[in-house]
């Protein structure tokens, strides 16, 4: 059980850079609270609690990837963005990371801003941009939804991993001897495989929720203002 820790440990990134990203994360979360409030109704609030709890659970489930001796786990940014939207989704990820750091000793408390920036801000933002784009292009079928979830999850994980590489370039504590590209390479390859797992989990979960309660999938609901307006216009059917 030695390897269950999964987030940035203390000492990996220096204090000033960790503090800088703590400020970035705080500003982003303040914005998310402000904008997310518009989305948080009586149904989305408990749903978002469930999404956070579900992401906590699935993050514990490290799955093997093709590279020997390396595992991966869900980050959850794309899943949260799909189910509860980008603003509330970012807050869900932040709550999970805070619980993990404060209660489960996973990820240094001083490193929280770095992790929240990577998984709660970068991954969620990238995922949501892709979701908004793909749902417009792809057919509104379970397959279209699955492809959207898969691609958004995969790309968001790889970009979030590059967020860490950027942070390491700014404030990494070990002297890599100019070999940042090496770290970037291992991070990119491992997170490409992790992203495939993330994509499969995200697509399966989102399609399942969409089949049971499509009204609880934010990404589908957000498009609805278009259809009710067009439904009365079709009046001839009735």
């Amino acid at each position: 059980m030695e390897n269950l820790a999964m987030h940035i440990s203390n000492g990996i990134i220096n204090g000033p850079v960790a503090a800088l990203f703590a400020v970035i994360a705080l500003v982003a979360m303040a914005l998310a609270v402000h904008r997310g409030r518009q989305d948080l109704d009586d149904r989305l609030a408990p749903m978002a609690g469930l999404v956070a709890a579900f992401i906590f659970a699935v993050q514990m489930l490290n799955f093997p990837i093709f590279t020997a001796g390396v595992s991966g786990h869900l980050l959850g940014g794309a899943l949260a963005a799909m189910l509860v939207g980008p603003w509330v989704g970012a807050l869900c990820i932040a709550v999970v990371l805070v619980v993990q750091a404060l209660v489960f000793g996973d990820g240094g408390v001083a490193m929280l801003g770095l992790s929240i920036t990577n998984m709660g801000v970068i991954a969620v933002a990238v995922a949501y941009l892709l979701i908004a784009l793909l749902l417009r292009v792809l057919p509104r079928t379970p397959a279209g939804l699955a492809v959207t979830a898969f691609v958004a999850a995969l790309v968001s994980v790889v970009v979030a991993a590059m967020g860490f590489v950027l942070q390491y370039w700014l404030g990494g504590t070990a002297d890599l001897g100019g070999n940042l590209a090496g770290l970037a390479g291992t991070m990119a390859v491992s997170h490409l495989f992790i992203g495939i797992g993330e994509g499969l989990i995200t697509a399966t979960t989102v399609v399942t929720v969409a089949k049971v309660r499509p009204d609880l999938v934010y990404a589908l609901r957000a498009r609805k203002p278009v259809s009710p307006a067009s439904v009365p216009a079709v009046g001839g059917v009735r």
Partner: peptide, 26 residues
């Protein structure tokens, strides 16, 4: 949904891979 999350974290978690994750191994 909460029941599924509890089962995943309470039971399935014991079948998780013990290897370090992508970040840790890098």
């Amino acid at each position: 949904g909460l029941l599924v999350a509890l089962l995943l974290a309470g039971v399935v978690s014991n079948f998780a891979s013990p290897h370090p994750d992508g970040l840790d191994s890098s």
